[in-house]
Design a protein around this nucleic acid. Structure first.
Length: 272
DNA sequence: GGACAGGTGCGGT
DNA sequence: ACCGCACCTGTC
């Protein structure tokens, strides 16, 4: 493995991993995390003024952690928008929007629907351990082929609940679905295509677009964002219109703003 | 034991 | 287009 240091300016490991965008990571001690993506692995350490990354795939993880993007200017601009955004950014200004594997995002966020983070992590871990190829550091995320071949009872057995058939059906559909080609489409068109996959609704589609395709112009609305809205953005919108409301408000950095607000709400709840 | 948290699909309007 | 409900599991 190679080890390298990167600036900790607007990059905090814990903020980035705990804001709901990734499920395959493990905290080892106060400052150390193991991160899995696709079939790749990294050990990530928070140091006082830097982040240390150890991996066999440095280029992959530089891109994964979005290290080429200037977050300081985004942080400055978003903080200036309103008092609530200033607080949210102050709470989570170390968040990076990860560049994750697109196929992995589809399945992980189908599992995430109507579910909690702890349980999602358990289900994804069982999925990888059962169907993923071995690597020197643990199991890879399974291939679409492996997931399509698994019987629906397998997905029940790993605790997926009623999402079992969504996972099986989407895996089979992805055998011929041009998922990677969605990158060439405008966000609205790509979302429309994602919504045809079983188990993918508006919220899950937005998460796939944001974390798997790096589309900053989406705003996934879950129960936490509804709470944020009703606590800080009294504007009389119905829940189904909240995503459009926030997208209009935040523009190209809507997804990043969503992460700041999600993390803030989960961290401080109604005390914020 | 029973309530609740957590998005999507579906049937009804 | 919108509403109300069922769905599975873990936790309190």
């Amino acid at each position: 493995m190679q080890t390298f240091l990167v600036s900790a300016n607007c990059f905090n490991v814990q903020d980035t991993l705990e804001c709901g965008q990734i499920f395959r990571y493990k905290q080892i001690d106060a400052n150390t995390f193991h991160v899995f993506s696709q079939n790749k692995f990294a050990i990530v350490r928070q140091l006082p003024n830097a982040v240390e990354i150890s991996t066999d795939h440095p280029d992959y993880f530089r891109h994964f952690f979005d290290l080429q993007t200037d977050y300081q200017s985004k942080v400055d601009r978003i903080s200036a928008m309103s008092p609530i955004m200033q607080k949210a950014v102050q709470c989570g200004k170390g968040i990076r929007i990860l560049n994750q594997d697109l196929t992995e995002m589809v399945f992980c966020f189908i599992i995430s629907a109507n579910n909690n983070i702890k349980r999602i992590q358990t289900i994804v871990e069982r999925l990888c351990n059962a169907l993923g190829e071995p690597t020197p550091y643990g199991r890879a995320f399974p291939t679409v082929q492996a997931m399509a071949n698994a019987p629906v009872e397998f997905y029940t057995s790993i605790g997926a609940g009623y999402r079992d058939k969504f996972l099986k059906q989407t895996a089979q559909k992805l055998l011929t679905f041009p998922l990677e080609e969605l990158r060439n489409l405008p966000t609205d068109e790509a979302r429309k295509q994602l919504l045809t996959l079983p188990g993918v609704g508006p919220k899950v589609a937005d998460c796939i677009l944001l974390f798997g395709m790096h589309r900053g112009d989406v705003f996934p609305v879950d129960t936490w964002l509804k709470k944020v809205y009703h606590a800080h953005f009294e504007a009389g919108h119905k829940d189904t219109q909240l995503s459009a409301f926030f997208c209009n408000l935040f523009g190209q950095d809507a997804g990043l703003c969503q992460q700041y607000l999600f993390y803030y709400q989960r961290k401080y709840g109604q005390n914020g």
